[in-house]
């Protein structure tokens, strides 16, 4: 069945120059493939964040609400963000570990704004699989992720467990002494 079909199709074509005949088939196939790809793209791209999701609001926050040694969790782009008012001991602990064995080496000074060392702003997503770590657990007096036991120090740096990176510090700037803008 299939053989006789190819034969009947190719018979009249035998009269034409073979290289030109091949070119027509290749061009037709290529056009079909191109068409399929062109149609597939909108179908895939629709999965990417929509315009309303991308219209990210920046967030302003008044730090005076956070007492020394306390931490608040605020929502930015629907993701939790930690704002931690660090005690001098927490800062000293973090600085002491600057040149120790770090999985993702980074100094504490690079993770805060100069002169504002007491304020640590972190994306509250464990860099392993995205859970929200809790403060006060683990061996480094910082955060402990309840999901898979990643331990962060008082600078939010990964010290133990499966997470590969330090907790991310989002882009932020001080608008005044006690007011920050995230994003």
């Amino acid at each position: 069945m299939a053989e006789s079909l190819t034969q009947s199709v190719s018979d009249p074509a035998n009269a034409v120059d073979p290289s030109r005949r091949d070119f027509i088939h290749i061009a037709a196939t290529a056009a079909a493939a191109g068409g399929v790809v062109a149609v597939a793209w909108p179908l895939i791209d629709q999965l990417n964040p929509a315009a309303d999701t991308l219209a990210l609001a920046t967030l302003e926050y008044d730090l005076s609400k956070v007492a020394l040694g306390q931490e608040v969790t605020i929502s930015w782009r629907k993701q939790p963000v930690f704002i931690r008012h660090r005690t001098p001991k927490e800062i000293a602990d973090a600085r002491a570990a600057d040149h120790g064995q770090l999985k993702d080496p980074e100094t504490d000074a690079a993770r805060v704004k100069a002169g504002k060392e007491q304020w640590l702003i972190l994306l509250a997503s464990c860099t392993h699989l995205g859970c929200v770590p809790t403060f006060g657990g683990g061996d480094y007096a910082g955060w402990l992720c309840p999901c898979h036991g990643s331990v962060y120090d008082t600078s939010g740096r990964i010290r133990k467990g499966p997470a590969p990176k330090n907790l991310y510090v989002p882009d932020y700037a001080f608008l005044s002494d006690t007011k920050i803008k995230i994003g």
Partner: peptide, 17 residues
Amino acid sequence: TTLLWGGFSVDDPTLNR
């Protein structure tokens, strides 16, 4: 992951898809 989420994190668009 972004294609799965449809945003910056798991959210409404994720639930819908």
